[in-house]
C-alpha cells in the first residue's frame, strides 16, 4: 500500500523540474543561431582591421585613396575610384539590360501568361538562376565578346571589355529581377484589377497604371537587390572585363573623350581585382594583400548600404491590403 501523499508533496512532484539535457540543447541551438552574428562580426572585424593596416602605411592616405586616378599599389597609387568606376559601369550596363527585360517578363508572367505557360517558363528562368557564374564568364568571353566585335569591329571592341561583361551580368541577374518582381506583382490583390477592368481599362492599362504602381515597393526592392548582386558579381568580370585597372595619369586625361567611361575597353572592377591579385602567389606582408581588404571593405559597405536601403524601401512604401 502506498502512503497517502500530503498536498505540499504533490505540489512538489508536479513542479517543473530542471532538465539539464533540454537546457544544454537550448544553449547549443542558441550558439548555432548566434554564429551568424559571429560571422558578421568576423567580416566587419577582418575587413576593418586589415584595411586599417593598409591606411596605417606611411605612403597611403584616405585623401589619395578617394581622389587618385590610378590603382597601382606597388608603385604608390591607390585611387579606388578607377575600380569603383569599372564596377559601376558593368553594373549600369547590367541594369540597362536586365531592368526593362526583367520587368517586361514579370508583367507578362503575372498579368498575361496562362497558368500553363507560367508553369513552363518559371522553371526555365530558375535554371538560368542556377547556372554557376563562372559559366556566364565563359559565355561572356566566348560568345558575347566575339558578337560585339563582329557587330562593331575589332578595332572598337577589345577582347576584354566592360560591355560584354556587363551585358552578361544583366543576363545573370535577369531571373532574380523577374522572380522578385513577379512576386511583387502577384501579391497585388485581384480586386484592384477587377475594379480597373470594371472601369473599362484594357489589360495593359491595368497592368501599367494599377498593378505596377501598387507593387512599386516590391519592384524597387527587386532592383536594389539586383544592383547589389551586380556590384558583388565576380567571376564574369574576372574572366571577361579586363586584367588590369583602367589607370589614368590625371583626371583630365581620364575625361578626355570620356575615356573613363568607354564600355568597349577593358577595365578591372573591385571584385575582379581582388580575384586576380589573390589568385596569384601573394605575400601576406605585401601592400597588395592589405589593399585587397581596403577594396573589400568598400565593396562590403556599398552592398550593405544597398541591402539596408532595399529593406527600408519595402517597409516604408509597402501598401498593406
Amino acid at each position: 500500500m502506498t502512503r497517502e501523499r500530503s498536498a505540499p508533496e504533490i505540489h512538489e512532484s508536479l513542479r517543473k523540474r530542471p532538465r539539464w539535457g533540454e537546457t544544454v540543447i537550448h544553449g547549443l541551438l542558441l550558439v548555432f543561431a548566434g554564429l551568424s552574428i559571429v560571422t558578421t562580426l568576423g567580416i566587419v572585424l577582418v575587413l576593418f582591421s586589415q584595411a586599417l593596416h593598409f591606411f596605417a602605411r606611411p605612403e597611403v592616405s584616405l585623401a589619395r585613396f578617394l581622389t587618385e586616378s590610378q590603382w597601382q599599389p606597388q608603385i604608390g597609387h591607390f585611387g579606388i575610384l578607377v575600380l569603383i568606376n569599372a564596377t559601376l559601369l558593368t553594373s549600369l550596363i547590367a541594369m540597362v539590360v536586365a531592368l526593362p527585360t526583367g520587368l517586361a517578363i514579370a508583367i507578362y508572367l503575372s498579368e498575361y501568361a496562362s497558368h500553363r505557360t507560367r508553369s513552363i517558363l518559371k522553371p526555365i528562368l530558375e535554371v538560368l538562376a542556377g547556372i554557376p557564374t563562372v559559366v556566364y564568364g565563359y559565355f561572356a568571353l566566348t560568345f558575347m565578346t566575339p558578337l560585339l566585335q563582329r557587330l562593331l569591329g575589332r578595332d572598337v571592341v577589345e577582347v576584354f571589355n566592360v560591355a560584354s561583361a556587363g551585358m552578361v551580368i544583366g543576363i545573370l541577374i535577369l531571373p532574380l529581377i523577374t522572380s522578385m518582381a513577379e512576386d511583387a506583382l502577384s501579391a497585388v490583390p485581384y480586386a484592384l484589377r477587377e475594379a480597373a477592368y470594371g472601369l473599362g481599362a484594357t489589360r495593359l492599362e491595368t497592368a501599367l497604371k494599377v498593378v505596377t504602381p501598387a507593387a512599386m515597393s516590391g519592384l524597387i526592392a527587386a532592383f536594389v537587390v539586383a544592383i547589389s548582386r551586380a556590384i558583388g558579381e565576380t567571376m564574369i568580370v574576372a574572366i571577361a572585363a579586363g586584367a588590369g585597372p583602367r589607370n589614368f595619369k590625371s583626371w583630365r586625361e581620364a575625361l578626355h573623350h570620356l575615356a573613363l567611361f568607354n564600355p568597349f575597353k577593358g577595365a578591372e572592377t573591385m571584385t575582379g581585382h581582388i580575384v586576380r591579385i589573390s589568385g596569384g602567389d601573394i605575400s601576406y606582408e605585401s601592400i597588395d594583400y592589405d589593399s585587397l581588404f581596403a577594396i573589400g571593405l568598400t565593396l562590403f559597405l556599398i552592398t550593405l548600404l544597398l541591402n539596408i536601403l532595399s529593406r527600408r524601401i519595402v517597409r516604408r512604401y509597402r501598401e498593406v491590403y
Partner: peptide, 28 residues
C-alpha cells in the same frame, strides 16, 4: 530580432567577401 535581420543581411553579402573572411580567419 538581431539574429534574424543579421541573417538576411548576410544573405546579401557578395560571396567574394566570404572569401576574404576565409583567407584572414581560416587560412591565416
Amino acid at each position: 530580432q538581431l539574429i534574424e535581420s543579421n541573417i538576411n543581411n548576410l544573405a546579401g553579402v557578395p560571396s567574394i567577401i566570404y572569401g576574404m573572411l576565409g583567407l584572414a580567419v581560416f587560412v591565416r
